[in-house]
């Protein structure tokens, strides 16, 4: 029996309460939002700037103060406009949260790897679980996200930069490999560029541990009907069955790490 036929899910317009410039290309927006029990790290919201709309992972889930946050990296006209022009007092519309997030109950020790702004998807895990070690990676020191936030909250993070300007010198997957050698992790989770995520899946196979990764595909409805974000070969809807997939699902995704589809549905290779 279908129960939600008469729910109205037009964007909920909220007023931005706080912004944080994280890096020269990354900015966080915090706004009031009722944090219900079913909201979970790894889920996403559709963000409407009163003109266009894009899916964004939830980067702040503050139950105590009923605040939500998103962390935006400049990657195109939508995010550039948000970074440059939107601030406290401006209005944005939010649909969702949608999709399945990380499910980490039952695991003893979690290694979470965030590449660039991918750390936005993982940071809320820290307020839901107390057994998560974080790797935050960026090309260079200035592009590391949430450095101040983690310092303020006294959270230990393994930072790494491609150029060695801060923390471990090298790729996040190299640091992850180091940590997995010695640590007794039973799952690796991650969000970031797909090439990094694909390597994380390979690492989980190498060390025979579980894996959950957040994937990103072009989205239109967020409701599981338009078909835009469906992923080969299983046809999983990234907006419903994802965006976080487990190891078994990831193993079935033939396009993972290889290609994606654009707004028209045409294949674009990585």
């Amino acid at each position: 029996m279908i129960k939600n036929v008469y729910d109205d899910e037009v964007p909920k317009v909220v007023t931005i309460k706080e912004t944080v410039i994280e890096t020269p290309t990354v900015k966080t927006f915090i706004f009031p939002f009722e944090i219900t029990e079913d909201i979970h790290p790894g889920q996403f919201v559709m963000v409407w700037d009163l003109n266009n709309e894009k899916p964004m992972t939830i980067s702040v889930i503050d139950k105590k103060n009923n605040l939500m946050g998103i962390t935006v990296r400049k990657a195109g006209p939508f995010t550039e406009n948000m970074y440059e022009n939107m601030g406290v007092g401006d209005k944005i519309g939010i649909r969702g949260p949608y999709g399945h997030g990380y499910e980490l109950s039952g695991y003893k020790k979690v290694l979470a790897v965030g590449g660039g702004s991918g750390i936005a998807s993982l940071a809320p895990l820290l307020s839901f679980y107390d057994n998560v070690d974080l790797i935050s990676a960026a090309s260079t020191k200035d592009e590391l996200v949430f450095v101040e936030k983690f310092k303020k909250e006294n959270i230990q993070v393994h930072e790494c930069t491609d150029d060695g300007s801060y923390g471990f010198k090298g790729f996040s997957t190299e640091l992850a490999d180091e940590l997995l050698k010695t640590g007794d992790y039973d799952i690796i989770v991650g969000c970031g560029p797909e090439i990094m995520s694909y390597k994380l899946l390979e690492l989980s196979q190498k060390y025979d541990i579980d894996c959950q990764l957040a994937l990103d595909r072009y989205m239109k409805c967020g409701l599981g009907i338009c078909g835009q974000c469906c992923i080969d070969d299983t046809g999983y809807r990234v907006c419903v069955e994802g965006p976080v997939f487990d190891k078994e699902q990831l193993g079935q995704l033939s396009e993972f790490g290889k290609y994606r589809r654009d707004a028209a549905g045409s294949i674009v290779e990585y």
């Binding site: 037009v10 409407w48 709309e53 409805c221 338009c226 835009q228 294949i267």
Partner: peptide
């Protein structure tokens, strides 16, 4: 976007015949 939004009793949509 927004091209499809859930509303009471269904959706309102203007995907606009997106296709490859």
């Amino acid at each position: 976007n927004p091209t499809i939004v859930k509303i009471e009793g269904g959706v309102i949509n203007s995907v606009g015949l997106a296709s490859p």
